[in-house]
């Protein structure tokens, strides 16, 4: 297992140098999005609007964080099951999405689309929220605060551990 320290955004050359099973310590910006935010995002884009999330800049992180306790930078974070977002992923990849972080298998269709668009799917470990929250440098609510845990949050992370699953 090779461990690589990498910064977002990823260039195409960088993505094509990744090997399944590599461990990545990731620096950069993550935008959280899960079921409801995906539904909204894709509805907006299908209606012809540009994506309010800069899809090619950071990584899309399937995550519904827990509230921030007083005195902390963030609450608990971690990946949720990616397969639930499979229905939206090929469309987002067509619109520039390059780096996805979640957990669990993807459908064959999503695997193909990830490869076709030169993107990468990274798996983060579920249930290690205390460790992951240590990697968070800053956190802000980015979109749709009313959605609570399902809103889009913007995290800047450092040395965020994940593994290359599909590339």
């Amino acid at each position: 297992m090779k461990v690589r320290k990498l910064s977002l955004p990823f260039s195409s050359e960088m993505i094509s140098s990744l090997i399944q099973g590599d461990k990545i310590l990731l620096d950069g910006t993550l935008y959280t999005s899960r079921d409801l935010a995906h539904t909204r995002l894709v509805e907006l884009m299908r209606a012809g609007q540009p994506s309010p999330i800069p899809l090619d800049e950071g990584a899309l992180f399937y995550c519904g964080p827990s509230p921030v306790p007083p005195g902390k930078v963030c609450g608990a974070i971690g990946p949720t099951t990616s397969a639930r977002m499979d229905r939206f992923t090929p469309f987002l990849l067509e619109h520039g999405l390059k780096v996805i972080i979640g957990k669990g298998d993807r459908s064959p269709e999503v695997c193909d689309a990830i490869r076709k668009h030169g993107a990468v799917y990274l798996v983060a470990t579920g249930g290690i929220s205390a460790l992951l929250s240590r990697c968070v440098v800053s956190r802000e609510t980015f979109l749709w605060p009313k959605l609570g845990a399902e809103a889009v949050y913007r995290y800047v992370v450092q040395d965020f551990p994940c593994y290359v699953a599909i590339v």
């Binding site: 608990a76 971690g78 249930g127 929220s129 205390a130 929250s133």
Partner: peptide, 23 residues
């Protein structure tokens, strides 16, 4: 590598009173 993190996370979560998992 992952099992190490899973085990270490519990000690840190307990100490910091942070959830084991965001869910």
């Amino acid at each position: 590598d992952i099992l190490d993190d899973i085990i270490d996370n519990a000690a840190l979560a307990r100490e910091e009173r942070l959830p084991l998992c965001q869910d």
